[in-house]
Design a protein around this nucleic acid. Structure first.
Lengths: 245, 245
DNA sequence: GCAAAAGTGTTCACGCTACACCCATGC
DNA sequence: GCATGGGTGTAGCGTGAACACTTTTGC
């Protein structure tokens, strides 16, 4: 692992100059088809021309990292509800081919963010030029840069957070059945946890799911009650160790 | 929250130019005195001259973020054992006074790292010029920049990780008594969990603490057995959901 | 002997798992 | 009626909390 380093004439080490990019891992869930989705955009310039990539942008003068992430989101989707948190910072040299190995020009550092949006409420902004699409996690294309790694990191975070945070309600529609909720957990986490009936009683006992009284029937079977996540009732449980499993 | 932004002549937004710093939150535990310690260094240049700060450095050409963190660690302490992970990236504008508000020169972004070292094995490198010291978390001085915030973030991470990761053994000496381990948990987490006897049996049942047979007596009381963390025995439990509590 | 710390064991209550069973709808 | 999914209940096992008790040392 020998890295070339330059020392300036005055004996100081040369500092790297950076451009900072923000790359967003934006998840959503299609409740109808029970698929976990990521938002990808088609690149319309080099490098990685015509590759799919995570939607990202470079940070502008006077702009905070988080604001850059929000700006990018607003450019791609018009969503009412939105959850955003910082994921990880990828900053090794040579992760972007624009850093020519010879010249030691600017390095490109990526601060990744993790976002959740509601599928039904998220309207993709077709800017005409480049492609933009929800991709199911089960059928991902090759991604530009190190975006595959970033995406895997985000996916891990999603699975972890599902177990102890109420982030499920950021991707579910406003009103949902307990079946929807259970499906979401199984599609993201796999089958390795409590059965529906136990899952159901655990969640209800926690007390932050409010039955709206409305019933909805989908195909065969008994109609299901629609629930709503009650943020006030959840508040006291914040940062208590919860288990949704 | 109105941020000034400049648009270049060609209609493109001006991108911010960054220097990237790495700031380390380095924890250790003094088992004798039962104190949680952070490593701080005294700044010897402006801005924040003579303020204590987290040890940090700017990333050099061709250097990865993680390597910058390791380099900085090596400059300050000579430690055998060492745990390091990325913490969070702080990058708002105006977090560093060197970014003059007028000129839109370089911005300073901080990628923070979280490190654990063993107190007894960590020899501080006195570089003579600036101060360097272990500070107990209970008596922190004012810190430079936004380092107080970074430190709090690291402290939260430490407490979280203690509950479900074997990081305690990164700060404890190689050989320790179950009393030492219990003390560590209480000094970091407070008193709100299982009593010694339950803690003890839970940890032993997990099976990765090996009794060395050696007894050690400290003051009054029955001599305690010295244990060692057995990494091989722990390996299968990796990424299983564990509770040390 | 007595205090202090290490180490063991027992009891009890609660929570999770697994499963059986009832309910309401479409066809 | 029967299949399908929603919803309720219960018996049993495991585990963690509380606490009593024993062991081995210093003084």
């Amino acid at each position: 692992m020998s890295e070339r380093r330059t020392k300036k004439a005055n004996g100081q080490w040369a500092l790297a100059d950076f451009k900072v990019g923000v790359d967003n891992v934006i998840f959503s869930v299609d409740t109808e088809q029970n698929r976990l989705l990521v938002l990808l955009v088609m690149r319309d310039k080099a490098p990685f021309l015509h590759y799919w990539s995570l939607p990202g942008t470079l940070v502008r003068e006077g702009e905070s990292l988080e604001n850059a992430a929000y700006r990018m989101l607003a450019e791609k989707i018009r969503a009412k509800n939105l959850y955003l948190e910082q994921l990880y910072t990828f900053g090794g040299p040579r992760r972007d081919p624009r850093e020519s190995a010879e010249s030691y020009g600017d390095r490109y550092l990526s601060v990744s963010y993790f976002a959740l949006v509601r599928f039904a409420e998220a309207e993709l902004v077709a800017d005409g030029v480049s492609g933009i699409a929800w991709y199911p996690m089960s059928q991902l294309p090759d991604l530009a840069f190190d975006h595959a790694e970033i995406l895997q990191y985000g996916y891990r975070r999603l699975r972890n957070k599902l177990e102890y945070s109420p982030i499920a309600f950021e991707v579910l529609p406003e009103l949902f059945t307990l079946g929807d909720l259970y499906q979401l957990y199984t599609t993201v986490l796999g089958e390795g946890f409590a059965d529906y009936s136990n899952f159901r009683s655990r969640l209800l006992k926690l007390g932050f799911l409010k039955d709206t009284g409305v019933k909805v029937t989908r195909g065969a079977g008994r109609p299901a009650a629609l629930y709503r996540f009650d943020a006030e009732a959840f508040a006291p449980l914040k940062d208590k160790p919860l288990v949704f499993v």
